[in-house]
Design a protein around this nucleic acid. Structure first.
Length: 648
DNA sequence: TTAGGGTTAG
């Protein structure tokens, strides 16, 4: 078009008797490089480049490098770079930066750094691209070091640089560095920039500074799906699940945009809350909004259903996945392990072919074996880990083996394993063995372990309680008194046991021996009714769970007052017997309450539907909708379109 | 030309 406009009008249309002049259009010699690249003929373009020799222009090189970047074509990119050197072409800052970016995108950081180091002049884009390369490869200290080097040259970072370098603020000194970068961002007026702010709040959340993270979030000049997801995820990753859910509901009401990452993060919070109803509705929302079921989201769903007690549904999702990552397998293995299905853990692990196990996989298998009582399988797995040497066991893996041996009653073997392991034992390791000493009544090792724990965490009341438990179990009531006296002197208080149940949007909390609930008489009557029924079914109270020197009748009474039993009795009073009673606890359940719950499940009849649900296919949950500021199920739907629940 | 959020374990 431009060339045409340059020609005088009279030369375009020769009139009769006038001989037209021959027009020669002078295109640059490398003009065909662009069309070759655009048409996907990179190899031909490179051949043309070689033929052209020194006649390749700035635009020609730019076209070639851009194509190499988009194709992540490293060898081809190297040929372009080599051609520049061979023909003594002197690229400008822009073109050298493009070369650097090509190496970064192709994962060749060493070459990228050589380009940067050889640049006589560098732009902010050159620096930022190199820092970004380091940050994306997890080379955080290199990224930070380069950032400092950049500052020393007097270069001022821009919003891209801040958003990038904040990702490198991780590890032991990351918070300190991050706060310094934050100061600099403030000075340059970038704190409220949406990309910089999102990185900042994410950095603070990852260090547990959730208030600072939220403050940055509130300061943002605008909000988008990434910044909203980052703050929700920040709460969820810290285990502040209620807060994550509340914030999601608020932002959702305000019209926040959601994508698969938002829902994956939200599902993490719902898993922590064991909030199956919300989890189901999020699943429904994902379907209704036609959010793509990327692997990350499916992994979150597997985890949510298993943590909410709906393991069969996790497996349905797992089996339906067209593609699985190691995390998908880990989530499923963890699910089986948490449900005590050790055999399933081992079976699934053995069938794991499509992806390689990682450290989390081994943790899941070892804990699964530990909870399922599969000692030999667990030890074999650990040996396998040592032999293969692909994943190096860390102290947590050793901890799992100690737990495995301890739970199985092999206390001395567990003790020797601790002594021989290549790590300094932590309080968690000794704590695991102390728990095993309580279960398997090993007083001498228990006393030794308690002394080690006294050195490591003298203020942990739980260790004193377990030791007193060990003494109580051995009938050494004087020692029990001594330990309790020691606790009193140190003014230690064990966190009291507490259970709660969510009924009709109200949370009912019970403490041990609670007599404060308005329905205490009915609860007590129901408790006695259940007690009689389960005793007939074979339940025998486990009096060893009582740590007081009282007679057996008194021990039974104390056991019956445990908060979870009160919550169970209350649940059966108000929940249809065909439904699930879901109780949350702040502490681990005692053995007697565990047995109590199992027997109650046996004597309280389930409706046939619950049993049938196990074999049902994925139900249609597209009718589930969001109403007002709460996520609720639609009351207008016909038939049962909810995801079935078979956890009772 | 350069940038931000994500799933499993403990």
């Amino acid at each position: 078009m431009l060339a045409r406009r340059c020609f005088p009008r009279h030369l375009h249309y020769p009139s009769n008797g006038v001989v037209s002049r021959q027009i020669n259009v002078h295109l640059p010699p490398d003009s065909n490089l662009n069309s070759l690249c655009v048409n996907g003929r990179l190899k031909d373009a490179l051949f043309a480049m070689a033929e052209l020799g020194t006649e390749v222009s700035f635009h020609g090189y730019d076209t070639l490098i851009t194509r190499c970047i988009s194709l992540r074509a490293l060898p081809e990119g190297q040929r372009v770079h080599a051609h520049m050197i061979k023909t003594h072409y002197r690229p400008n800052v822009y073109l050298e930066t493009r070369l650097l970016i090509m190496y970064v995108k192709c994962g060749s950081l060493g070459d990228a750094r050589m380009v940067l180091d050889g640049m006589p002049n560098r732009s902010i884009v050159s620096w930022t691209s190199m820092i970004s390369g380091y940050s994306q490869s997890g080379l955080h200290s290199e990224g930070l070091e380069l950032f400092l080097q950049m500052l020393r040259t007097g270069m001022t970072p821009n919003e891209f640089t801040f958003a990038t370098v904040l990702r490198s603020c991780t590890g032991p000194c990351g918070l300190e560095h991050g706060m310094q970068v934050h100061s600099l961002a403030l000075k340059n007026n970038f704190e409220s920039h949406i990309f910089v702010g999102s990185s900042l709040l994410d950095m603070y959340a990852k260090y547990g500074k959730i208030h600072e993270a939220h403050r940055v979030f509130d300061m943002l000049s605008e909000r988008d799906v990434v910044s909203c997801t980052a703050i929700i995820s920040g709460y969820a990753q810290l285990g502040l699940d209620d807060e994550a859910l509340d914030l999601f509901q608020k932002l959702f009401k305000d019209g926040m945009e959601c994508n698969y990452v938002t829902f994956a993060s939200l599902l993490t919070a719902l898993s922590g809350l064991a909030a199956l109803n919300y989890g189901r509705q999020v699943h429904g929302l994902v379907i209704r909004r036609e959010i793509p079921f990327y692997v990350v989201l499916q992994n979150s769903l597997i985890d949510m259903y298993s943590k909410c007690g709906n393991l069969a549904y996790s497996r349905k999702i797992f089996d339906s996945m067209p593609e699985r990552t190691t995390i998908s397998w880990n989530a499923m293995l963890v699910g089986y392990g948490k449900h005590g299905l050790g055999q399933e853990v081992v079976k699934l692990f053995k069938s794991m072919r499509e992806v390689k196990p990682d450290g989390v996989t081994y943790m899941a298998v070892l804990t699964g074996c530990s909870h399922g009582g599969l000692v030999d399988e667990g030890l074999n797995t650990f040996d396998c880990m040592l032999n293969e040497q692909r994943v190096k066991p860390d102290i947590e893996h050793y901890g799992c083996v100690i737990d495995l041996l301890g739970r199985a009653g092999r206390i001395e073997k567990a003790f020797n394993f601790i002594i021989d392991m290549p790590f300094e034992p932590t309080s968690a390791i000794w704590g695991s063995l102390l728990g095993a000493c309580r279960v398997h009544a090993n007083v001498p090792i228990g006393e030794f372990v308690f002394q080690r724990l006294l050195d490591l965490e003298p203020e942990n009341a739980g260790n004193y309680v377990i030791l007193s438990n060990i003494y109580a179990n051995a009938g050494r009531w004087e020692d029990v008194s001594s330990v309790r006296q020691l606790m009193k002197e140190k003014t230690m208080m064990k966190e009291p046991g507490r259970s709660w149940i969510n009924l009709d949007k109200t949370v009912h909390t019970f403490h041990s021996g609670d007599r404060t609930h308005p329905q205490k008489e009915e609860i007590n009557a129901k408790l006695m009714e259940l007690f009689v029924k389960i005793k007939e079914a074979g339940y025998v109270p486990d009096l060893s769970c009582v740590l007081h020197d009282v007679d057996d009748e008194q021990k039974e009474r104390i056991l019956l007052g445990h908060s979870e039993k009160l919550a169970i009795a209350f649940g059966t009073m108000h929940t249809s017997y065909s439904g699930t009673i879901r109780i949350m606890k702040n502490l681990r359940i005692c053995v007697d309450c565990h047995n109590f719950a199992k027997f109650v499940s046996m004597v309280v009849p389930l409706a046939d539907d619950d049993m049938l649900c196990l074999t049902e296919s994925l139900p249609n949950i597209s009718n589930i909708s969001l109403k007002d500021d709460h996520i609720t199920g639609s009351s207008e739907q016909k038939g049962d379109t909810s995801i079935p629940d078979y956890t009772s």
